[in-house]
């Protein structure tokens, strides 16, 4: 215990305190946190897929996947999701060029395409409901509705977020906060494309086999 001789840092030549003030990278700290949230969200989908894997054959005498999926229609939705993501990608490249107009414009395109996707999805499920193919009919239908619409709900949430971000870009420009949020939204929106690949393959393609 050599506590008597309390040397200072200068005499010892060892840097004990970081007076140089190296702050943390705010943007990447924020996007990393959001990325962690995305992974947690992916776990939600993984669980829903696990439930679907168990229940897909439990039709209780009601309609099975072959009876209700329309792969070509779903492919239309795929085109919309992917192109919305592409438009959002252009919005991010516009951000790289610091173009407010570009960011807002491309985001508007992404928003419209996303809304188109939601429209198609609502049309599909309204049609099912009309025929009495509702979640309360069987376990398969319960998990079908919940899995697909969970993705849809994410899409809807993303659209609201885009509206907020378009306003914020117009109002505050590219502040640290706004850029961090744009990058998080980018992750969120791209993630919907990843999830759609899984939904499309497992539900619409495997369902049609």
């Amino acid at each position: 215990m050599s506590t008597q001789n309390t040397r200072t840092q200068s005499s010892a030549g060892v840097a004990l305190w970081d007076e140089g003030h190296h702050g943390h990278d705010v943007i990447s700290t924020r996007t990393f946190g959001f990325w962690l949230y995305m992974l947690s969200d992916a776990m939600i989908f993984a669980t829903l897929f696990a439930a679907y894997a168990v229940l897909a054959s439990h039709t209780a005498g009601g309609p099975a996947a072959q009876d209700i999926v329309h792969p070509w229609y779903a492919f239309g939705e795929t085109v919309l999701v992917f192109s919305s993501v592409l438009a959002f990608g252009f919005s991010v490249t516009a951000l790289k060029a610091a173009s407010r107009g570009g960011v807002i414009g491309w985001m508007a395109v992404a928003l419209l395409l996303g809304a188109g996707f939601l429209g198609m999805e609502i049309h599909e499920f309204a049609g099912l409901a009309m025929q009495g193919i509702v979640p309360a009919r069987s376990a398969f239908l319960s998990s079908y509705w919940v899995l697909v619409l969970t993705h849809g709900l994410h899409m809807a949430f993303g659209l609201i977020w885009m509206l907020v971000m378009m306003y914020q870009v117009a109002r505050y420009g590219f502040s640290t906060d706004v850029v961090a949020r744009l990058l998080s939204l980018k992750y969120f929106w791209f993630f919907q494309a990843v999830m759609w690949v899984c939904v499309f393959t497992v539900i619409y393609l495997h369902g049609a086999i």
């Binding site: 702050g23 943390h24 850029v179």
Partner: peptide
């Protein structure tokens, strides 16, 4: 919190 990027352009991140 401490933000070393306040003085930088966030777009350059």
């Amino acid at each position: 919190m401490s933000d070393s990027h306040d003085h930088e352009n966030p777009v350059q991140h």
